[in-house]
Each structure stands twice: as structure tokens, then as C-alpha cells.
Amino acid sequence: MDLTKEQKIRLYTNLVRVRKLDETMVKALLTGKISTFFHSGEGQEAVGVGACSFLREDDYLFPSHRGHAISKTLIKGLPARIILAEHYGRITGCCDGVSGFHTCDMKLGIPGMSGTLGGHFPLAVGMGLAAQLRGKKQVVMVIEGEGTYARGTFHESMIMAATWKLPNLFIVENNQIMGNTPVKIIHPKDDFADLGFGYGVPAKVVDGQDVFAVHKEVQTAIDRARADEGPSLIECKTYRIQPHAVGLPDTLLGRPRTQEEIEVWRKRDPIKLAQKRLLKEGVLTQVDIEKIDGGAANEMEEADRLAWADPMPTDPKEILKKALYAE
């Protein structure tokens, strides 16, 4: 099914919003407003935006740590102010400021973020089982970095999801670098999607810089899942522009990363690609583009201002008293 003009504009707008929020968070880190770290997702926005822009609110989403999940959570409906407030330790954050960056909002179907990579897979299968039992055609989407797909939890979860035909989507955001290691030296094959064959799960490789291509493949998989036809595996090829975390030495295998490689990928920036296409198709004009840009910038500036002004908890110890058990 072809995208409507509105849907295309929505995808483009979401790309820009995510980029602006990423920039806001980098700035917040460098000015000390974020006290720990930020793993920028610059250049990888098309994966999350393409996959999540048209999810239902009651669908479940497990996002990867890259970009602290903003290309997924912001798109799923979590306001930027709440994301920022959580990073700033404010009580208005989605987890009362307790989580640092582990975004969670069950009303939006975002159950949280695992501190150990690969922790999401079995949890997602459990939610897939719940969705299947509930029978409301919800889907469960897991988007993880390629490095994470090496975890044994993936194997165990795929077997379960495939055997029971659960409405799960496994999306590989392959940015080609795991920490400081190029993924090609730790993975035996070119495509992670090849792993799907062993489980009898349909698997596709898609250009992760092309938001429309990502959306198309993911939508096919979502439709399959909603039709009770079981899980799918989609590998999106993208590239990590920034270091593992902002401010960390940008090294590969102990040596500085070459700028040439980064430049090649900067030329395939997902926003530029989408912009070019929509201008050519006449969906957007230069004026529209500036308007979208300005709107997103305003949204993030205001979110930042409000979040920073939000209150800190007056009595941290009260929060900790409630930390362990529901009652």
C-alpha cells in the first residue's frame, strides 16, 4: 500500500524531530545538564522512525539503548519534555527521574529498557504471548543493535516466537560497530537476517537510511503479525556517525576511526535522502521544510526549558522507600 502525502510528511517530520532532540541532548550532556552519558543516534533515525511512526498506541515496543531510544519512544508518543525530564532527574520524568535513561511508559506500550544488552528478547516474547492471548492484534516490536543479536537470549526467544507464531517483530539496527569493534570481525556472515532461516522466520535486509523503505518492510511484517502469521526479522543497514557515547574516544580496535568512512555515510544522511525525495515528488516545498525544521527546533527548545525548570524530588529517601516492592 502506498503512503499518503500526509504519511510521508509525518515520516519526514519525525526524522527531523528526532534529530533535533538528539542535538538537544548532546548539548545537555556537554553543558552538564545530563549527568552521565549520551549514546547519540545521529544518522540512524530512519530505522526507529520508519518502524514506529504508524504503530498503534497499544502495540509494545522494546527499543535499543542507542540514542537512548528517542528515535522510537518519541515517535511512539512519549513527549520530549518527559524524556528530557527523566534525564535531568526531575519528578516529571517518565520514571520520576529514578531511571536515568531507562525510558518506560506502559500507557504507551513502552515497558522499559534492559541494562544488559539482549535482555529484551525474552521479555518481548512474553509480551507477544500476552498479546496473542488477549487477541486484540497487538504487535511487539524489538529494535536492537546488531551486536545484541549475538546474545543467546535471541536464539531462545526466536524459537519460542516462531514455534508459537507470536506477533513479534525483531528489527536489527545494524550500525556496523559494536562499542569499539567493527561488527564484521565478530560476526561470521554479512547479513544478520540469515539467522531467520533456521527458525523458519521470514527475514529481509533493508536500507536503514531510507525511512520509506524501512517503513514498507516493517509494515509488511506488522500486517503478518496482526494476521497471526508469526514473527519476522528485518535487518536495517545503517551506520553509527558518533562515538559509542558522546565524548568518548572515537576508536575502532584501539585506533582512531577514519573520517573518510564517516563522511561516506554522512552523504547518505536519512533526513537529506528523505528531503530530496519529497522535494522531487512535490510532496514538500522548501518553505515546508523550513517550517518543519523550525517547528521541531521550537518543540525541543521548549521541552528542554520546561524539563530543566521542573522540580527535583524534595525527599529522595521517600522514593527509595518505595523502591523494592509494590506495597
Binding site: I159, A162, D194, Y199
Partner: peptide
Amino acid sequence: SDIFPKENMADLAFGYGM
């Protein structure tokens, strides 16, 4: 057959290139 999605477990090899 109730707990594994495919007939042959040998199919797993493909994903690892062996």
C-alpha cells in the same frame, strides 16, 4: 516438534555460514 519451529535443526547452520 511441539517446541521447535522447523523440521530440521540442521537448518540453523545457515545463519552462521557453516
